[in-house]
Design a protein around this nucleic acid. Structure first.
Lengths: 252, 252
DNA sequence: GGGGAGAGATGCCGC
DNA sequence: GCGGCATTTCTCCCC
């Protein structure tokens, strides 16, 4: 239970930080509830509460990598007091969502104006993988001639699209991790649509799943559908192997 | 750039907090790199860095609800100094992953021993929805007799399974949000397997997608496959409507 | 804004 | 541990 004076001080500090569009981090003994797309409750415990200047509202427990309760950017924050507890409410009118945090004790309070214009650069995505295949078609097959990447059909797109020396169409679906049953189904869907739109028998279109690995089931489905699996490591792995893993040498 | 003395003090504080298995929150001007399943870099900016006692390592930017760089629980943290920067490394030997944070300036440092044994209680999941259908079968059809929920087939499971008054099998796939093209495909897959394992013509098995809504494409696919869509609101919404929305009355 | 699919997805449960 | 799948998924991209 927060003393009246302490409570007033925190309320004041948090209000000021909110007004100044600062980032707020609280370590606090609190209970949480969420109501919106679903309903969630979390009984009293020590939590990390983050309020960002874009009004993202996050509640983390002392374990695990995901916020257990959260509100998306653009919500609205209000502070009040009740029964010796400090109450934080984050609400989003348009999404009809509400989070309520009841704070019994504040262990730590920090706030600061943070400035960050950078964006994460990510390498080794599925896109990079399809680029790699497009630029190195022999890893699929000696006679594979790629025509386009990310071919836009009206619904969804094909990762790599091309033909073999006999002008059979080839459709490749890439997965950067082990391919599951979704991959053959995606391939089937694309090929069915392609066959209809081009007036070609589906048998004339070769389907290939390119991934570092595939589950037994997905492999079985592929076989049933008459498609092939091609083992391809994602670019990051290839790159690392070639670069003798200078950054990861500690793991050798 | 951190002054030598300041740097030493922070290094000491962080080391002590780590040793005591405390939760650490840093607001710091820093650059981040990740190497593992992919490669990622993030140039200098103000970030929120969290190290939890289970060695979860999180880097948040001042916007957005997800960590931009992270390490899963169980990694290992080391601190060092180089060129007037404090360097935090989080590594996971088994996953061959490494995060490196180069800190130019520490804006705020907090640490505390947090204690939290609670777990989030979540209501309104897809599971709750299939339970609801199982217990209120007339919302699907007057003659629907449910037999089981979450029927375990060898590969995947069926949300609700039953039959009509003519003993035709009925398979229901629930989605708690708008159903996309995955739903009809899942249904098709289940029904194909079921028809094979039971030796029944697929035409004798009725497929139903139960969801609050469905995309145009998914609806079209459903029709092609001969399945039906049934509009069902997820339980949380139903519940809220009945309870006259006392918690959400502020939205009225 | 809706639709579709990737994500370093994560996390859960079942075999 | 693998596999299949939900997630208050989130996020991006394209129509």
């Amino acid at each position: 239970m927060l003393a009246k004076k302490e409570s007033e001080e925190f309320k004041d500090s948090i209000s000021k930080a909110l007004k100044r569009k600062q980032t707020i981090v609280l370590l606090a003994h609190s209970s949480i509830s969420y109501s919106g797309r679903a309903e969630a409750t979390l009984d009293y415990g020590d939590r990390i509460i983050i309020i960002k200047p874009d009004k993202t509202f996050l509640v983390h427990q002392p374990t695990g990598s995901n916020a257990v309760i959260y509100m998306k950017p653009g919500s609205q924050v209000e502070i009040s007091e009740e029964d010796g507890e400090l109450i934080l409410q984050s609400s989003n009118m348009t999404l009809h969502e509400l989070v309520e945090v009841r704070i019994k004790k504040i262990i730590s309070f920090s706030s600061a104006s943070l400035s960050d214009a950078e964006r994460v650069q990510l390498f080794g995505t599925e896109k990079d993988m399809s680029d790699y295949i497009y630029n190195n078609p022999d890893i699929i097959s000696k006679d594979f001639k790629p025509v386009s990447r990310e071919e836009q059909t009206k619904h969804g797109y094909i990762d790599v699209f091309g033909h073999d020396k006999n002008d059979n169409l080839i459709v490749i679906e890439c997965k950067r991790t082990k391919a599951g049953p979704g991959a053959p189904q995606q391939l089937r869907r694309y090929i069915e649509r392609l066959s209809k739109s081009k007036g070609i028998s589906p048998d004339k279109i070769r389907g290939i799943v390119a991934a570092p690995n595939i589950t037994k089931n997905a492999e079985h489905m592929l076989k049933e559908l008459g498609y092939k699996f091609k083992k391809i490591d994602p670019p990051a792995y290839l790159k690392r192997k070639k670069e003798s893993q200078h950054r990861l040498e500690r793991f050798n």
